[in-house]
Design a protein around this nucleic acid. Structure first.
Length: 493
RNA sequence: GGGCCAUUAGCUCAGCUGGCAGAGCACCUGACUUUUAAUCAGGGUGUCCCAGGUUCGAAUCCUGGAUGGCUCACCA
């Protein structure tokens, strides 16, 4: 960073002085491999068996209370923290003097006997200790911790040191994703990896990031979805596949949007979107059960029951419920447009029935859908990769799963008719030419794959970050992404 | 992109209608062998986000900018 320009203030200088003093006394402040045999939490949990026994622990000192010829400190490790007690008459003059050069934040390795203090706190009575790493910067204050959100995101390492709940969120995140993987593997799905850099970024309606390959001298796009490659694998006969991975979309940033985020997409040959509903509700319910031991989550003070089955409702029914406008009684584009105008929406002339229905859904319904629900019957215009309903070709066999007003799953019975797919792409190209740079691009190779024949299939995508927000009760996506996208601090230097 | 709000010590924050830059923790010096927000005595360590402007005088008022938060727009 700007280390060199940075004036070393008194706090930094004091630590560097101690660093030099340690070296002058022949102690290397940045130590070597160290083997601990216990975590702090293990010792506290198993005090009865460990009392009087010698343990070795390693961690960061987070507080020091010095009493002259003895001192207390707390040592924090991956699983918690534990008090240590060091006495002049236990460790000898030389070691005790070295302890004067310890700062809050330093990593040390400690060996000693387990005992309880008068007040009953499990403590390690230090027999020997060793420097593992000197900390040259002061940690945030002990009661208020680090609150400045900008600093928390920019220096997540500090946030993780001092804010226990933040550490827990990211441990939960990891467990949620590994549990998802275990479940999918158990259900017979094959985890695959498809390209992140692509010459055509398809599978979603979004703007991509662009980069350049020097040797090939071509534009490459970062993927906006994993969909089209995974469906190629269905053509190839892999039958049940999924990919958990990073998606990149060149869009605005908000509490529910980060330019890079993690999705899982799941595809199954010979299945349909109803199978995908079952996978969605079972996956999320099972994760809650296995990771948190519960059928319901508490999100922002509201209890949300995740137990399957979740209700299924059509978009037309939901729009009628929340807006009073009944699209089943609206026969054509023009009547739909009039209905929108009456509702006070400002729409471009010539929008089709389906897009207007979808606008109504977005405007009146999405944020009302607090309990888990599957919304079905999406219009064909906004679903270029989904199979049409035979009973009503204006709609598709697609659903989105909503919880707490957020879209967390999107799935359909996959369009496997290459001729229909080509027409849908051509429609999208029309939108693109009309200035919609988020419309889908033509992907000839994908059509080519479909022309070889893709079985009927169900496909499902889940936004993992939003799912984690729900499960960990966080209202900002930046609180479930370790290093969220931020503008650089100093501009143009 | 629009609106609103924030930015003061390492951290958490106070600083009124313009008049010498503050507190707690942390840190430094000293005392203290079961403390735990340890205690006691002493010490303020600062580009008041940046650049202009108004004024005898600006952390404070004005203009522009930066970063962040919320929100609207945007966003399957």
């Amino acid at each position: 960073m700007e280390q060199e320009q940075e004036q070393l203030n008194e706090l930094l200088l004091a630590r560097r002085r101690k660093l030099e003093e340690l070296r002058a006394r022949g102690v290397e402040p940045f130590g070597q491999k160290f083997e601990a045999d216990h975590y702090s939490a293990d010792i506290i949990e198993n005090y009865d068996t460990l009392e009087g026994r010698e343990v070795t622990i390693a961690g960061r000192l987070i507080s020091i209370r010095s009493h002259g010829k003895a001192a207390f400190a707390h040592l924090q490790d991956y699983r918690g923290k534990i008090q240590i007690y060091i006495r002049l008459d236990q460790v000898g003059q030389e070691k005790y003097e070295l302890f004067d050069l310890v700062d809050i934040g330093d990593f040390v390795g400690v060996t000693g006997e387990v005992f309880k203090t008068r007040k009953g706190e499990v403590t390690v009575n230090v027999k020997d200790y060793t420097y593992l790493a000197k900390s040259l910067r002061p940690l945030p204050e002990k009661w208020h911790g680090l609150k400045d959100v900008e600093l928390r995101y920019r220096q997540r390492y500090v946030d993780l040191i001092v804010n226990e709940e933040v550490r827990q969120t990211f441990i939960d995140r990891s467990r949620i994703i590994s549990t998802m993987r275990e479940l999918l593997n158990e259900w017979g799905f094959l985890e695959v990896e498809t390209p992140i850099m692509q010459t055509i970024a398809g599978g979603a309606l979004a703007r991509p990031f662009v980069t350049h390959h020097n040797a090939l001298d071509i534009k490459l796009y970062l993927r906006i979805a994993t969909e089209l490659h995974l469906k190629r694998l269905l053509v190839g006969g892999l039958d049940k596949v999924y990919e958990i991975g990073r998606i990149f979309r060149n869009e605005g940033i908000s509490t529910i949007h980060n330019p890079e985020f993690t999705s899982v997409e799941i595809y199954q040959n010979y299945a349909d979107y109803e199978d995908m509903m079952e996978i969605t509700e079972n996956l999320i319910h099972q994760i809650a059960k296995k990771v948190f031991g519960t059928d319901s989550i508490e999100f922002q003070g509201k209890v949300i029951d995740l137990t399957p089955p979740w209700p299924r409702e059509t978009m037309i029914d939901i729009v009628r419920k929340y807006s009073g406008v009944d699209f089943s009684q609206i026969p054509d584009d023009e009547t739909a447009f009039q209905a929108a105008r009456k509702a006070g929406m400002e729409l471009d002339k010539g929008l089709p029935w389906g897009e207007i229905l979808y606008k109504f859904f977005e405007m009146y319904c999405e944020e009302q859908l607090l309990e888990p629900i599957f919304v079905t019957g999406f219009p064909v215009e906004v679903s270029p990769l989904a199979k049409k309903m035979e009973s009503d070709p204006r709609l598709t066999l697609r659903f989105e799963g909503f919880i707490a007003g957020w879209e967390i799953a999107n799935a359909f019975t996959e369009l496997n008719d290459p001729i229909d797919q080509r027409e849908r792409f051509e429609q999208q190209l029309g939108k693109r030419e009309a200035g919609d740079d988020e419309a889908h691009v033509m992907d000839e190779d994908f059509i080519n794959a479909l022309e070889y024949g893709m079985p009927p299939a169900g496909g499902l995508g889940i936004g993992i970050d939003r799912m984690i927000m729900l499960l960990t009760d966080n209202i900002s996506i930046r609180d479930v992404i370790l290093f969220p996208t931020l503008k650089p601090r100093s501009h143009g230097e």
